[in-house]
Every structure is written in structure tokens, then in C-alpha cells.
Nucleic acid binder design. Structure first.
Length: 418
DNA sequence: TCTGGGGTCCTAGGACCC
DNA sequence: TCTGGGGTCCTAGGACCC
């Protein structure tokens, strides 16, 4: 069996942990730049605020309904996630942390356990230790565990937040209940195509013939079908080392100017380099992309990306920025208003396994320099020391409703009046 | 006026090689 | 008039996830 444990309305719940006065009130959390809604409390969902809603379109509703709005506070959510995952990892030796708010447990050899009771224990422990409510679903495969979790979340009164899909009768009943567009792995495009073919439920999907699925949804669709039929196909992913690291941002205004775009891209390259050094890796390739505002049909559109191989593995901000600018020059076209850009590094090798190369101009002194730079920025604050090609004044994200970093910054720890 | 960021995997088509 | 087969690498894009 597998379990899927999922934090309810995770970001909204994190905000609530330190603000119990917000219980029962509608809360939304916004993306970077306070752009769109990325998390909602149940009360906010009941007001009809959809996931991904642009904040400016819903401002009026927020005001009228007294919706509490928060800017995304990722240091807080990341820290709370670590706490939740640490607790859940005690419930099975085989764990896959699937996302910031979800994890799979593999429960082979748990046949003697009353899983529903086991789930209730997890739930209670996480709630008591962190203040975060979770839902738990048990089933024979991962795709079905996702479904079981959905049932637990949808019917909290009947399930107490824990559902065990123990028999094939329960499985078929659940598959018939689940709408095709809500199946894990079926996105908007496939849902449309399937609906047009009369496939309305997950059960209908499991009745399709393999050839059609292979042709229209490739191998991914076939795997999903098997998993939904109860045949173990998707297994726990190994504790995955990342294959890519990205820093990408939308700009609040269009950028026309090459120099301005270069400043931004340089900052993103430096940020990727810092992330690389943090996980003690070097990269051997680098991609960058730039694109115009796709929401503006009246403006000329252009989007392009490029990937380049580096002559040696590196995590030096100086080297990575240098190549990012080389790449940018190759895809930049003047005459467009750019809205977004990003740097992605990949093809990693461990820092200590760096290949020494005779014929490249890798500077061996960079690693000491980067070390010093990281230390200064750690001590005196982010971006205290930076490359001259980066922005003169760091461009600030819009974060008008940011909550304190309750658990990751000593200055933000809550005070309790006695 | 304002519309996120960070990931994964898969496939198609062109260039190029032998 | 008729014009191969098999492979790799790269770019771009599609589709999905949270």
C-alpha cells in the first residue's frame, strides 16, 4: 500500500499557525510580485476565488468580503514543510517528498496495521507538533492514493481526514466518482480531448483501449491507466537530486533596453550560482530564455531560449554570469518589450569531482573568492557584495502584505506578553 | 496599469554523420 | 523518372505537477 499525505491549503495554513485570530476567516496568499492567488483557505474557496486568479481582478471582492491577503512568504513555508516532513518520515522507512506540501509513504509489510487508525495518528501528531492540518489517503498504487487523499479531504466529516481504499469495490466506486479533469496527470488539454470522446470519469478512462491512449497521450498516459487500474506502475522516486536549477522572474514593466535586460539576467545567473554552491554542485550547461508579454495581444510577441555547454564545470558567479550574457546576446532582438526572463543551469557534477582541464581558462582562485563572497552576504545581508554588471539598486519585488519570518529569522520571533 | 515560479518528462523535426 | 538507413545531438514546444 501507499499513503499520500497532503497539507490542507498549505500556505494559508502556515499563515494561520502564528495568527490563530485568522481561524474561520477567508485568507489568500499571492505569488511573487503579489500577482495571482496561489493558496486559499476553505472560506476563500467558498467565496468563489479561483486558483491562479489575478489579484487586481479580485481586489474589489477582497475588500468587500474582508479577505485577508498575504504576500508569499517562502522562507516560512519551506521551514514549516521541513517540520511536517520530518514527522511524517517517522511513519515509514520509504518516503518520497513529492512537493512542498505532499509526501508519499510506501507501506509494504504493514498488513497487520489498521491503516485508518494509523492515518489518524499521523494527522494528530502533525497537527499537534506544527499546527498544520493534513489529509491522508491509502491505496494500492500512487495514483489511487492521490484519489484516496482527495476523498479524505472532500468528506472530512465522514472520513475524519483519513481514507483507506482497501478493496476493489471501493476503488471502482471512487473511480466513477472522480471527474476526468481531476485525475492526477490529466491536465486541461487532455481533459478536453477526453471529454470530447465521452470520457467523463476516471473509470471511463480506465476502460479506454491502450492503442488510443498511447497514440494520444504517449507512454505517460498508459502508465497512468495501469496505476489507476490498481497495477503498481509508478513507484516512489529516489531521493531525487535536482536536474535543473532555475531563477526566473516577470518584470513589473516591459524592458526594451538590452542593458537593463542584461542586469536582470546577470542577477538571475548569480542567484543560480549561489543555489549551486549551496548544494555543492557545479554545472556544465546553462539555458536562458526571454519573452514578451503574452497577455498583450496588441504588442509584438517574441520568445526565445538558448542552451549552451560550458567549457568546464563551474559554480562561480563570475563565470556563469559571463556565459549567461554571451547567451543573451545571441537571442536578444531589439524592438520588443520583454516581460520575463530566466536562467536555468543543469548537467551537474559534485563540486569535489570537478574535472581539471588543461586547455581551458578556468580560474582556480574563483572558488576561494566565491566562498568569501557567500560569507559576506550571509553576514551582512543578501547582495551586500555583487557583480558590477548586476543591477545598481536591487530591484524589489512587490510584497505589500508580507508576514514575519516567524521561524527562520531571530528578529521575527513572536513575543508573548506575560 | 496590474496576470508566479520552479520543476519533470516526452516528442517532433532539422542538421549532421557514416 | 527512379534517390537509403541508422544513428546522435540540438532546439523548440507540449503537457503535466505543485
Amino acid at each position: 500500500m501507499y499513503a499520500l499525505i497532503d497539507c490542507n491549503n498549505f500556505y494559508a495554513s502556515c499563515e494561520r499557525v502564528f495568527r490563530p485570530d485568522l481561524n474561520g476567516r477567508p485568507i489568500v496568499v499571492l505569488s511573487n510580485n503579489d500577482g495571482c492567488v496561489i493558496a486559499r483557505s476553505n472560506e476563500a474557496k467558498d467565496l468563489g476565488i479561483p486558483m491562479g486568479a489575478p489579484a487586481f481582478e479580485y481586489q474589489e471582492l477582497f475588500d468587500k468580503q474582508n479577505v485577508l491577503v498575504f504576500s508569499a512568504n517562502f522562507p516560512l513555508y519551506g521551514d514549516m514543510s521541513n517540520r511536517v516532513m520530518a514527522i511524517l518520515s517517522e511513519y515509514s522507512p520509504e518516503v518520497e517528498i513529492y512537493s512542498i506540501d505532499e509526501c508519499f509513504l510506501k507501506l509494504d509489510g504493514f498488513g497487520m496495521f489498521d491503516l485508518w487508525e494509523y492515518g489518524l495518528q499521523m494527522r494528530a501528531k502533525v497537527l499537534k507538533s506544527t499546527g498544520i492540518p493534513v489529509s491522508v489517503g491509502f491505496a494500492p498504487t500512487k495514483a489511487l492514493a492521490k484519489l484516496a487523499n482527495r476523498i479524505a479531504k472532500k468528506f472530512p466529516d465522514r472520513t475524519k481526514g483519513v481514507y483507506n481504499m482497501a478493496t476493489s469495490e471501493l476503488r471502482d466506486k471512487a473511480l466513477k466518482w472522480l471527474k476526468i479533469e481531476d485525475v492526477w496527470g490529466i491536465g486541461r488539454r487532455h481533459a478536453l480531448r477526453l471529454n470530447a470522446r465521452g470520457v467523463k470519469s476516471a473509470f471511463d478512462f480506465t476502460q479506454l483501449n491502450d492503442e488510443w491512449i498511447k497514440k494520444n497521450m504517449a507512454i505517460v498516459g498508459l502508465r497512468l491507466k495501469r496505476d489507476l487500474c490498481g497495477i503498481r506502475t509508478l513507484d516512489l522516486e529516489e531521493t531525487k537530486s535536482k536536474k535543473n536549477i532555475a531563477t526566473t522572474r516577470s518584470f513589473s514593466n516591459n524592458i526594451v533596453d538590452f542593458e537593463q535586460l542584461r542586469e536582470r539576467v546577470s542577477s538571475y545567473a548569480v542567484s543560480c550560482s549561489e543555489k549551486l554552491r549551496k548544494q555543492k554542485s557545479c554545472c556544465k550547461e546553462l539555458s536562458i530564455f526571454i519573452l514578451t508579454n503574452r497577455h498583450r495581444a496588441d504588442q509584438a510577441q517574441y520568445s526565445r531560449s538558448i542552451r549552451i555547454k560550458l567549457p568546464f564545470a563551474t559554480n562561480s558567479s563570475i563565470e556563469i554570469t559571463k556565459y549567461a550574457i554571451v547567451a543573451l546576446k545571441r537571442i536578444f532582438r531589439s524592438g520588443y518589450g520583454y516581460k520575463k526572463a530566466g536562467v536555468i543551469v543543469g548537467d551537474f557534477v559534485p563540486e569535489e569531482a570537478e574535472q581539471l582541464s588543461l586547455f581551458t581558462d578556468k580560474n582556480p582562485r574563483h572558488s576561494a573568492l566565491m566562498h568569501a563572497l557567500d560569507n559576506m552576504n550571509k553576514k551582512y545581508g543578501k547582495n551586500t557584495v555583487r557583480l558590477s554588471v548586476q543591477e545598481k539598486r536591487m530591484w524589489k519585488m512587490r510584497q505589500e502584505k508580507l508576514s514575519p519570518h516567524y521561524t527562520t529569522d531571530l528578529n521575527d520571533i513572536i513575543t508573548i506578553r506575560v
